[in-house]
Every structure is written in structure tokens, then in C-alpha cells.
Write a protein that binds this DNA or RNA. Structure first.
Lengths: 121, 121
DNA sequence: CTGGATCCAGGTGGATACTG
DNA sequence: CAGTATCCACCTGGATCCAG
């Protein structure tokens, strides 16, 4: 396997920005509970617009993290679920989420201290 | 403890976007090896502009992840190092990076398949 | 050497209206 | 119901120049 250090960086950054974008993680976490319809997701994820939900799901489907199943009925129905790959992502992402929640007070204190230091200047 | 579900989401998203932004993680990983000067970082992180390095470091300092030490000499010298909090972030982030590298081939195959499916339409 | 200030291009995401 | 299309405001980040 001929893979350079830079390649790894690029690959990693791609995944990290996937995780860092505004909605992907929320979609993944919600789908972690099981299959959901488009409107289920829209209702579950507070504040997401139809457009962004569509775009986010397309991206995740494209990367093989989410499977999309269309039922050609009227009215149409589309189910979304995590793929096996998508479920493996759940674990490291959850670890990060837990870190965030555990250290939030610390971070907030730091921000306030930083604010005060900036003002007294 | 009076913390709402939404609060947690917001807090988590804040951290995730920190991790998802273009440079923060690279700075953190580089500082994981030990203290570095501004110009060291600039050289180590390929492609970062002076401006973005400054902004990224300010953000990390603000959140208490990085400690900044100024030596009032001429020419000036500024050292950066991870705080204890910053080092704790290293672990979950690394887990994610490893995931990215391990599953990159899978993701790339998925993307190519998605491309082909889109073209044949 | 370590930034701050400014300008600018491109991308992200929100609102809204429309369609099969 | 599950999108697509369009328009637009904002933010991020790059380039460049200036300063202590």
C-alpha cells in the first residue's frame, strides 16, 4: 500500500469536516436508534430545513454511511438507516460527544476568563 | 444539575465544529508532541496561512485547550503548548482519525459507485 | 518574529416557492 | 410526502500589506 502522510491528513480532514458540519452527526445519532423516514428525521432534528436535511442525507448516502430506500407509493415514502459502516462511526463520534459534555463547564469558564482578560485591556 | 437536552446538543455541536474546522485539529496534533513556537507551527502545518494560524490559536487559547507564553524579547518569541484539557481531547480525536484512515478505502469505493449510479441516470 | 488590518472569493446554510 | 429550484446573507479562509 502506497499511502503518503499527506494523503492520510487529507482523508482525516475529510472525515473530520463531515463530523464538523452542521447536521451530519445529528442525523447519524438519530439514525443510530433505527430506521427513520424523511419526515421523522425532520421532526426529530430541531431547526433543520428541508433543504439541509436532503443535502446532508445525500452526502451520507454518497459516503456509504446511510442507506436510502424508496417505496414507490403515493404518497411517496423514503426510509433511511445507517449502514454497517455508518454504525461503526457511531462509536468514535459518541466518544467525542461525551468529551464535549464532560468538559463543557471547563471550556465555558475558560471563555469567560478570556473575555474578562480581553476587556481589561 | 439543570441541563436540557438541547443544551447538550449545542455544546456538542460547538466542540464538533471545533474539531471540524480546517486547522484546529492539526494544531492540536502537532502540539501533542510538545511545545512549539509560532513559526514552528507555521512550518509544520503545510498550507496554513499566518492569519489562520493566529485565528486558530486564539480560538484554542480562548477555550483553554492551548496555553500561550510570550517572551518580551526582541525579536519577540511566543510558545504554544497544550493544556491538560487540550491533551485530553487528543484521545477521542485520534480515535476518529484512525477511523477515517481505516475506512477511507470503503468510503472512496462508495463515492465512486455513487458517481456511476448518478451518471447512468 | 509575531502578529494585526483589510479586502475579497467561495462555500455553507436559511427562507421560500414549486413539483411529482 | 419527499424532495427540487432559486435567491440570498453570512462566514470561512486566502492574499496582501503593515506594525511593534
Amino acid at each position: 500500500m502506497t499511502r503518503s502522510y499527506d494523503d492520510d491528513c487529507v482523508a482525516t480532514r475529510e472525515i473530520l469536516s463531515l463530523v464538523g458540519d452542521k447536521w451530519s452527526v445529528l442525523v447519524i445519532v438519530n439514525l443510530g436508534a433505527g430506521t427513520m423516514r424523511f419526515s421523522d428525521l425532520k421532526r426529530a432534528i430541531d431547526g433543520i430545513s428541508q433543504r439541509m436535511l436532503t443535502l446532508t442525507l445525500r452526502g451520507l448516502e454518497r459516503d456509504g454511511l446511510v442507506k436510502r430506500t424508496v417505496f414507490p407509493t403515493i404518497p411517496p415514502r423514503v426510509d433511511y438507516e445507517l449502514t454497517r459502516l455508518g454504525r461503526t462511526l457511531l462509536e468514535p463520534v459518541t466518544a467525542l460527544a461525551i468529551w464535549a459534555q464532560q468538559h463543557r463547564p471547563e471550556i465555558q469558564r475558560s471563555r469567560e476568563a478570556f473575555q474578562r482578560a480581553a476587556k481589561s485591556k
